[in-house]
Design a protein around this nucleic acid. Structure first.
Lengths: 227, 227
DNA sequence: CGGTGCGTTGACATTTCTCAACTGTTGTGG
DNA sequence: CCACAACAGTTGAGAAATGTCAACGCACCG
């Protein structure tokens, strides 16, 4: 479970008791913008893509959720309406759908649950700010490097092994670059011997190069924060 | 007050009782990344800029807070550490500094406070997702249009009046474009009669054009500045 | 064995950033 | 009160980066 991890077993059980298991197949729509938010979700198995669509068809990937992640709380506790699309992206995708009103009831009666929720939302807020920072980085190289460095990685000797975990198309979407640019950056890095790209995962041979790239390539200081 | 608005007076009083008034002058640093978060803040008067700095000196404006806004909760209830810089940006800036531990205590004893906090955080989460969407828009035009359309505006006839409320430099930072590009986009729009830009505020003459631009479809008509 | 979708590669057009100079405003100190 | 410094904003020209369009290879799946 998500940020509910660490809750005492009895409380966790109470929450699960409010949940209903839902099974979706790949491509199935869970909710769309404007839908009334009556519950939130926890991914038990599979993958869920949450994205927004601009009227011109451009798609922005907002969240990419795997087993253990939860989503929908902000809509439920905030505006009461979903403001994005959610679609199952793996074939057997199973979700726990937690009933909103009953959760709120429980929430009001137990401060531990409230604390867990608040700290969970806080953590996500911090993560989103990091995403914003990432998108504000100039240059595709910097954005990709920044992204890679905050992925969970396995150390294999001096190398880092990072699983893509999503289609490159989706990754490009998330970084707000085109798949073409992504492909070119990877090829260039590989040509310089910084990385080795395989089908399922990526080996980072020189993590420090990536780090410097994420920081903007150089090391000079430009404009100290005025005032 | 921020998302605490709507709380019964007695509870609000209890919160205020935990607060300490702090007065800062322009440019004064409130906290920096790595500082231990022991309280959160509410702006009573003035302006606070919250930003992150990449090692190469590039600055990303995360929040721009005016009277009534609060900040610092995610750090306090999440990681316990601040992860950004906060600086007073107006000369008489006054803040309410709410003690974290004591707030948590109150929080645990009163579910109404917990609800208010959760819905406040949720709202901010939704707002950040909107910001992410904005940054992912390709083209400076689309980003600026999107930004303008979600600003509070006063209708003056068929026109919209929007106050800048911040330096253009800061706006550019927030949109992840350069001040030069911002200036050029405004000039072009003004040349096409879509807007009228004044020192303190901006009049949108054709909101629908902006809407289409924000949707990414405004890239067609591109004529050089008339005069 | 085709079909479909993802990823790659190439050539080209466009936008934005960079660098640099200039203007106008604000605030300070002589 | 004026001169001057500091800073925000504007404008211009060239360079660099990314998006666009199009074609191709490659897997996976029926």
């Amino acid at each position: 479970m998500p940020h509910l991890r660490g809750l005492p077993a009895d409380l966790l059980g109470s929450v699960v008791a409010l949940a209903r298991l839902r099974r979706l197949s790949a491509g199935e729509l869970l909710f769309a913008p404007g839908d009334r938010a009556k519950s939130f979700f926890v991914v038990a198995r599979g993958v869920v893509r949450v994205y927004r669509i601009a009227p011109d068809g451009a798609e922005q990937l907002v969240h990419y959720l795997r087993a253990g992640n939860s989503f929908g709380e902000p809509a439920l506790f905030g505006t009461g309406l979903f403001h994005a699309h959610a679609v199952a992206a793996a074939d057997p995708t199973e979700l726990l759908e937690v009933d909103g009103p009953r959760f709120l009831e429980l929430f009001r009666s137990d401060a531990r649950l409230a604390s867990a929720l608040v700290s969970g939302l806080s953590a996500r807020l911090v993560e989103l700010v990091t995403r914003i920072e990432e998108l504000a980085l100039v240059g595709a190289d910097a954005r990709l490097a920044h992204f890679l460095l905050r992925q969970p990685a396995r150390s294999v000797g001096r190398e880092l092994a990072i699983a893509w975990g999503m289609r490159k198309k989706d990754l490009a979407l998330q970084l707000a670059i085109t798949p073409e640019t992504l492909s070119r950056v990877l090829r260039r890095w590989q040509g310089q011997g910084w990385i080795r790209s395989e089908r399922e995962r990526l080996f980072v041979l020189e993590p420090e190069r990536l780090l410097r790239t994420a920081e903007g390539g150089g090391a000079e200081v430009r404009s100290p924060p005025a005032s």
